[in-house]
Design a protein around this nucleic acid. Structure first.
Lengths: 337, 337
DNA sequence: CGTAGGGCTGGAACCGGTTCCGATCGGAGC
DNA sequence: GCTCCGATCGGAACCGGTTCCAGCCCTACG
């Protein structure tokens, strides 16, 4: 492996000038810069970021703390993060928080402390005050997409409350009154304070329409859980709602399948609206409130770069509202009768 | 940030002894080791792997080259990789190959060359000879799960041909003769040479039963593509097969949904068998050949460690056959009539 | 009692970069 | 012609570890 000393020798300059020529910092005459650069190319020299990090304190890598790694939304965000980092010369170091508590502790007490990453990006993770504190003490800039991270300098988030209102109002406007929210897991209630949850957005919109305490069924964010919950909910014809608001598209898919299995036509007998903009939404003709997870990842990297002083000098804001968009397909219509 | 010099000073020894005491290499008296260790704990010292990597050449991180990051199988493997690396003190550096060619080139020509990772694990990636060569020249040990990587020292792979045979024979044994394979994308034919593809396993099993040139429909490995392909395949009652062998579970799900939409009962009018063991297989009652992607990831890390000399001294084999298992559920039965 | 040998330890070199500081040089300004 | 200044460059220190090597002490053995 060629080192910068080899480049220096080959181009007849000192290590110092070779470093300056290659990094672009400091004054070097155009002629010598040329010589150094061609020499480096000739022997295939590539600087070791590890060595550089010792003195600069920058390792050209970013840690990603992610809530899951194997769910649709997270895979998409990860794709965006990866792509954006790759374009800027940064490595992505992955820390999955969906592990047992002991392993999670090690992430905060050991991995994040060993000055390996220049910044941390969180993806929908909820940190305890202690974890947040430990993260803050590393002195690294922190960006987060959703979740609760007290130590984040920049927080990107979709307004869940508003998103839920959008979806709910769409159903209300079509004439539905008997709507059930599927989703809104227990845990989400804890996050209420931060941004407002999907549950409260749903209930607010319903309340505006004069319907108090609109019902919801806690469900995990997965197709199979949505399926079983929907089977239960829709099984009794006497108490069947005319519309289901699924807290994510995968729940909506499960609901869709359950409904058809029960012989219900969609949207004839049941309207369904989801949240996410999942790639399979089109296949189900699902009306949904789209978010753009890949772009969310890219944007998170943009702000992380800005915090690291590698950005386009835009001032990083503290809070960014991520856009969502209602996309109407064939799964919603006015209720029968 | 405390450095090893701080630890040394506090415990009254030299940097050299402190290093020996903490790393466990070299002779240190139990008494001084104790002093050093407690001093380190007291000031919260954590060694910088970057600094250590300079002299040891080991950075305590492993690069993961992955074909996709946002598909079920890959998310599962990633989970296993992450968990296993975390347990052993290694960082996971992610390189997603599902990027434009220019970015892909940079991964091989730049990122993998900057001696950041100690080893590379590939997940179902097909490397060009040039890419393989570049990877080999880094001198890093390489482990791969599936795919084609010439430079891999250890290759874990399910026997796709055998897997397809298993699934096909299951259908044949139930009495099906009219079976169509959904999947077997174009690209897979190129990989024929390596391990035998699902297509050829299917055809061989069919040929054993006296059916030559059994039909298959190239389809991308996704639910929505499976859905449209199945709609097309099953739409014409005159040429409808009695069973579909889906090359992956997501295609099987799509087929399932398409079949029911066409009013077909499963398994009454159509049997379906898939491959993967997807978490949603249970929901669809899908008969499938299970593989264990999380465990595959864990195993890949085990062998990488072994190649790095951190393993349990087992000799790393060159080829490992990953186990699969036929799980029969309600989506298959004898054909009607 | 002398010596060999082994256990422990510290000094110093080193890994591969970056950056501080001082030296050199050439040209502008007087 | 002399001074001054800025551009350019090299030497050396430094980042935070690891490891080579030499030296010390102590014990075992002849």
């Amino acid at each position: 492996m060629p080192s910068i000393a080899d480049v220096a020798r080959l181009s007849g300059v000192s290590k110092a000038t070779a470093s300056r020529a290659l990094s672009g910092r400091g004054a070097v005459s155009p002629a010598t810069r040329d010589r150094v650069v061609t020499a480096a190319a000739e022997i295939g020299y590539i600087a070791s970021p590890n060595a550089a990090s010792l003195v600069t304190g920058r390792s050209k890598s970013i840690g990603v703390l992610i809530r899951f790694v194997n769910r649709w939304y997270f895979g998409e965000v990860l794709e965006g993060l990866e792509r954006a980092m790759l374009a800027r010369g940064y490595d992505l170091v992955l820390y999955n928080l969906a592990v047992e508590p002991e392993a999670r502790r090690r992430i905060f007490e050991y991995y994040l402390q060993r000055r390996r990453v220049d910044a941390v990006i969180g993806v929908d993770v909820d940190l305890s005050p202690d974890e947040s504190d430990r993260l803050a003490r590393t002195g690294r800039p922190v960006v987060t997409i959703g979740g609760t991270m007290l130590s984040a300098a920049v927080r990107l988030a979709v307004d869940h409350r508003e998103t839920a209102r959008l979806a709910t109002r769409h159903l209300l406007r079509l004439g539905h009154r008997d709507i059930v929210l599927l989703g809104g897991e227990e845990a989400e209630r804890d996050r209420e304070g931060v941004q407002g949850s999907r549950v409260s957005g749903f209930r607010e919109a319903m309340a505006e329409a004069g319907i108090a305490d609109a019902p919801y069924l806690p469900t995990e964010y997965s197709m199979s859980e949505g399926f079983s919950a929907a089977l239960q909910l829709l099984g009794d014809p006497a108490h069947r709602p005319t519309a289901v608001f699924a807290a994510c598209d995968e729940i909506a898919f499960g609901t869709h399948i359950a409904a058809r299995r029960l012989g219900l036509g969609i949207p004839a007998d049941l309207s369904i609206v989801g949240i996410d903009g999942h790639e399979n939404a089109g296949m189900f003709g699902l009306t949904t409130v789209e978010q753009r997870p890949v772009e969310q990842g890219e944007q998170a990297v943009r702000w992380a770069m800005s915090l690291l002083g590698e950005g386009d000098d835009e001032q990083a804001p503290h809070d960014v509202d991520l856009p969502v968009k209602l996309v109407v397909r064939s799964s919603t219509s006015a209720p029968a009768r």
